[in-house]
């Protein structure tokens, strides 16, 4: 019975996400088509491409056809995984983005993991004694973390830990002469990861600590917690076993729905730290006006966010059946 209900829910959300994705693709095309100048320039990029290539692009995308045909062709291409060709990099945009995916994943997953673990821990601890010293400190950190521009935090971390103290490298994902095998290589990778991951984490650390604390406070006042306490459950068991389990749903929701912001933050952080991921690619493509790559990244990021929202919805529903 419950499984069937969940199945229906997943199906409904999927039916919901598909048109959303469609709208995202159409919006992408609307952007291309409404740019001042010739849309072919956007599809080819600022590169002295051969005239025949431009003619072919014009034909392939049906730029001489009525708008609905243009949109249909664009959507069809995108659905077939064709995000265009980057002349500046002499590579199809999709494979260009795929090649950078691992680095971005490494950075964002580390930041997300770190900020979730520490954020939940801080949120739980500060909810235990509201208005205590720790709680005040956490609340202060949360407020500050939410206000600091992350790319500036990155610059300041470079200034202190790379330039003044010289403890950690400030640019790139590994040592200049490539990577040593085995543990030395991993250690080197970690050293390069620390500062950018920290800069990217701060905002989510703040957010997650704040949401966890709020959710915990709400749950801690509930009857079943009082009951558990009355049964003589230890403070630890109450906090972790009962309260945190019930506070998990809102926390996961927040993490899922903020994935878009993490990716945006990653664009800035990768630029500051010369991190070879999608964000840095976006910065470079803006600098060289490599429009196909730019549009491709926008599309991939949008699609990722839609997918993450879908997954979050489903996960939330599974954790908290009250959600209809």
């Amino acid at each position: 019975m419950r499984a069937a209900a969940l199945g229906w829910f997943v199906l409904r959300r999927l039916l919901h996400a598909v048109p959303l994705l469609f709208c995202v693709v159409v919006l992408n095309y609307a952007l291309i088509a409404s740019t001042p100048g010739d849309p072919v320039t956007v599809l080819v990029g600022d590169f002295p491409a051969p005239a025949e290539y431009k003619t072919q692009v014009r034909h392939d995308y049906g730029l001489d056809q009525p708008i609905p045909v243009q949109v249909a062709r664009y959507v069809t291409r995108v659905l077939h995984g064709d995000l265009g060709y980057s002349f500046a990099n002499r590579q199809p945009v999709l494979s260009l983005i795929a090649g950078r995916l691992a680095a971005t994943l490494e950075l964002t997953a580390t930041a997300l993991g770190f900020s979730s673990l520490l954020g939940i821990a801080l949120g739980v601890l500060s909810a235990r004694r509201p208005d205590g010293v720790l709680d005040r400190a956490v609340r202060g950190l949360a407020t500050a973390g939410y206000a600091l521009p992350e790319f500036w935090v990155g610059q300041m971390l470079i200034l202190v830990f790379a330039i003044w103290l010289g403890w950690l490298p400030s640019q790139g994902a590994h040592a200049i002469r490539g990577v040593a095998p085995g543990w030395a290589g991993i250690a080197d990778g970690v050293r390069h990861l620390i500062l950018p991951a920290l800069a990217l984490s701060l905002r989510y650390l703040a957010l997650i600590a704040r949401i966890t604390r709020g959710a915990m406070l709400e749950v801690l006042g509930a009857d079943f917690i009082l009951a558990a306490r009355a049964r003589g459950a230890s403070e630890r068991a109450v906090l972790i076993g009962h309260a945190l389990r019930n506070a998990a749903a809102p926390v996961i929701t927040v993490i899922g729905f903020n994935l878009g912001f993490i990716l945006a933050g990653s664009a800035l952080i990768e630029t500051v730290f010369g991190w070879p991921g999608i964000g840095r690619l976006l910065f470079d493509s803006i600098g060289s006006r490599d429009y196909p790559t730019m549009m491709g990244i926008l599309l991939v990021v949008s699609a990722t966010v839609v997918a993450a929202n879908l997954a979050t919805d489903i996960l939330h529903r599974m954790l908290d059946p009250r959600v209809g």
Partner: peptide, 12 residues
């Protein structure tokens, strides 16, 4: 510099 911009995947 138009050819610049390619980069790397996983470092190790």
């Amino acid at each position: 510099t138009l050819g610049a911009g390619a980069a790397i995947g996983l470092p190790w």
